[in-house]
Amino acid sequence: MSKKIVFSAAILICSCLWVNAQTPKLKKAFNGKNLKGWAVPENNIWWSANDGVLTVKNGPDKKGSILWTEKEYENFIIETDFLFGEGTVDSGIFLRTDSQQIQLGISGSLKRDMTCSPYIAGKGYPVEASNIKQLLKQEDWNTVRIQAVGNLYTVWLNGEQVLNYESENAAAKGPLGLQLHANRDMAIHFRNIKIGKLP
């Protein structure tokens, strides 16, 4: 066996080991029955769990709400299925802070779908996720996967990478949150919420 083949094989093995090291075992963050493990807002009328699905919808006063994980995370992967419900859906997943999120649905400021794009307070949407129109299923379940390593956010939609964004002021550590935007008449559903910690 030539030295070149041996070297190439060694590189391949190291690459596989690195990928495996960066792909943690994801653990269920939602048990499908109740909101255990989440910091439920006082006087909760928005969030409900039923038959494996977490649903959030606006109340009559159209107040917003965030459902935070009780645990805090530094480097992580979060993966969830989501299904748009009734109304104009404006939701997202907060990343360690309420000032940075990955959008799900229609942007209130841009008036168009910005699913999988980062919203950064003070900057708006600095970049837009790619190929969303082709990948996003408006009336069926989708799967979003978000990886945050330091200030680098990588996002996949239905198995395809659609975003790689480096935030200048990402929070180092904090909980993850699901958003119900205020002043909307909307609902969104989540299932199979899983989170894994990265080194």
Rank of each mutant, 00 (worst) to 15 (best):
L178I: 02
L178T: 08
L135I: 06
S91Y: 02
S107K: 05
P118C: 07
V56A: 14
L104Y: 00
V144N: 03
V53F: 01
P41H: 00
R145L: 09
N192F: 03
A129L: 00
N131C: 11
A170C: 07
A129G: 11
K133I: 06
M114C: 07
I66R: 04
N75C: 00
I5G: 11
K36Y: 11
G122C: 10
I45A: 10
L12M: 14
K62E: 14
W156A: 06
D90V: 00
V144F: 00
E139N: 11
I5C: 15
T115N: 06
A9R: 12
K28A: 05
G196W: 05
E74H: 06
L110C: 03
Q100C: 05
Q101W: 04
A170S: 10
D51V: 03
K71D: 14
W38L: 07
G52A: 07
L12T: 12
T115H: 01
G159N: 10
G122R: 11
M186K: 12
G159D: 08
I193E: 03
E72H: 07
Y125M: 09
N31S: 09
Y153D: 04
L17V: 15
T23L: 15
K4D: 15
W46V: 09
M1K: 12
A29D: 01
T97R: 04
G87P: 00
T23Q: 14
V19E: 15
N34T: 07
W38Y: 07
I45T: 15
V162T: 04
A182Y: 06
V53R: 02
Q22H: 12
C14M: 15
G59H: 15
L198W: 05
W68D: 05
G64T: 09
G64L: 11
K71V: 07
N158R: 07
P24Q: 12
S8W: 14
W18M: 15
G124D: 08
I188S: 00
A172F: 12
G159S: 03
S8Y: 15
Q147P: 01
V19K: 12
K133G: 09
K133S: 14
